[in-house]
Structures are given as C-alpha cells and as structure tokens.
Amino acid sequence: MEAMVDVRNVVRRFGSFLAVDDVSFGVGRGEVIGFLGPNGAGKSTTMKMITGFLLPSAGAINVGGYDVVADPIEAKRNIGYLPEGAPAYPDMTSRQFLNFIADIRHLDGPVRRRRLDLVIEQTHIGDVLDQPIDTLSKGYKRRVGLAQAILHDPPILVLDEPTDGLDPNQKHEMRGLIGSMAAEKAIIISTHILEEVEAICTRAIIISHGRLVAEGWPEAEGWRLGDLQVEPGRLDAAFRQITGAAA
C-alpha cells in the first residue's frame, strides 16, 4: 500500500514534558485511521506535527512525499486539517471564510465554484452561509471547519475530533461523509467515541502517555485490539483495559 503519511520515531517535548514519545506509523490511501487515547495522551500534538503547526523535537514526518520540516508548504498543500475545536475567524461569514480558504488554496474559475458548491452541499451549511461564524451553533461551526478542510479535495485529511459537539443525527451524517471520502484519501481522525471507530475506521491506533500502546483492526467478527480479541460493540472495555494498564 502506498503510504501517504509516514510518521517515523517522532518525539515531541514541551520543556521537560514528553508529550509524544517515539511514535511511528504510516497511513495509506483508502485507510481511515482512528486515533484513540485518553485526554492529554498526545493525539492532538501528533496531529499538529503532521500538519506542520508544531515541529517534532526528533524523528521525521513525511506527508504526500514531502518532509514537513524541509518542505512545509508543499506538505500543507496535500493536507486538509480540522484543528481541535474547529477554529475559524469569528467576524467572517461562512461564505467569506470559505472564499478566503479558496484564495489561499489557489482555486479558480469553474473548479472553485464547483468545489465550493459541492462542499457546501456535503456539509449542509447552505443555510448559514451569510451568518458571521461566531453566531453559529457548535454543530454548524464544526461543519464549516470540515468544509474548509475538504475544500481543495486533499489526498490527506487530518480531523481532530470531527464529531465533537454534533447531535446524533449530525454525527451519523459526518461519519457518512467521512466514509464516502475514504476510498481515495488517507484519513486520520481522533475521537473519544469508540462506536465511531467501529463504524468508519479501517485501523485504530491507541496512544497513552505519548506512546503508541496498541494497534487494532477489524476482523471477520469484531475487532483485534493489541493482544485482545474484541466482540462487536465491546471496544470501550478493551480500550479501558489497554490504557488503564499503561497508566
């Protein structure tokens, strides 16, 4: 499988605190990686390093063939990123915000119009296009953030808690949307919702205290998570066992 994202022996320190400790993994086209772990485990830090917001203290990250430290701009062109909390400029309307992203992503003419129309439809934000972003509900804000991330149809998607703050229907739709894009992209999502992993992920990576403690994947019946054979719907028990033991 063609590796779109390659994380090699990555370490990240904040002062004396070791946030990410020698983590390695790869993500190929067609994969949806579920990034799991307790709060503060290093999930977001790892995502920030993949997307070039933070530099690794050691190790190397390659994104779409570009090293994130040596070729940051090229690497960033290949990524769509929804940061934690879906930050967006509060004074802008959704439309202005997406137009700004389209400018930065160098989308022009008919392609620009087609992409804008498509993501607005996919994320169902047509009703709030002319509202300032700071007046939007959490769910709409998250969807505008996702629209921003997928606007340039990137080969790699990094989504930090994409379903946080959505109601059950919206969660279901978000998962459907991510699933529909899965075939031609490499996707990394972080989540606390284990049913989500079962629903859309092709692989799971569990991080605890900055270390990669287990990998998992679906099998004919249920999931394999590290050494554990997990029955369908019982992932959270296995998750507790793995992360609790590592704590």
Partner: peptide, 12 residues
Amino acid sequence: GGTIELLLTLPV
C-alpha cells in the same frame, strides 16, 4: 481564538 493553528497549517 486558536485560528493561528488554521493560518499556520494553510500553505502560506
């Protein structure tokens, strides 16, 4: 507001 994370992860 955290938008710096957005700005600095755009190809700029």
